[in-house]
Amino acid sequence: MKLEITREWFERRAKQEGDLEISAGRLARDPTPDETDIEPAVVDTADPMRMAFGSLVETMRRRRGLTIEKLAERIDLDAGDIMRIERDAHFRPEPRAVYRLAETFDLPHKALQQLSGNTVARPGLQEQALRFAARSGESPQKLSRDEQQALEEFVAYLQKQQG
């Protein structure tokens, strides 16, 4: 393939592109090796909870002053997996990993499996999870007072839900 782009051509064209959106492709689902395998519609509702799960793991880890590597070591998981658990809402963690996380952070197993998307969520969990996810940030520093409070409230809810 011949791709020879001059600075002059690029400047002229890119100016027209400006800040326009450019995404193209299938909107609602991703292709799989088997094109007929349509993802279930629950994906949209499950994902915000999965994001809350990522936030929860991240804030719990930070509260304990653990690096990703240290946590990975403690629960015998790949550091890359911890990163994906925290940051990639599409990554579905193994139930075993969720179990170890619950153990490490003293959180109820069942509630954490629901949050991770491994089991069906009880009513009310999604709403609480969204509220928590919305209040937690991504700054690598210490937890803010509000983040701390959001974390405590959510953990208390999770524990009560199992009680």
Partner: peptide, 30 residues
């Protein structure tokens, strides 16, 4: 996974905090 997603997720969190549903999230987020 490690550079794009956190930026998109931060935006989604901000939109969730405003009470917006996935229909209002940036296209292609998933």
């Amino acid at each position: 996974e490690t550079e794009w997603k956190p930026v998109t997720n931060a935006k989604i969190r901000a939109l969730m905090a405003k009470g917006l549903s996935p229909a209002d999230w940036p296209e292609g987020w998933h």
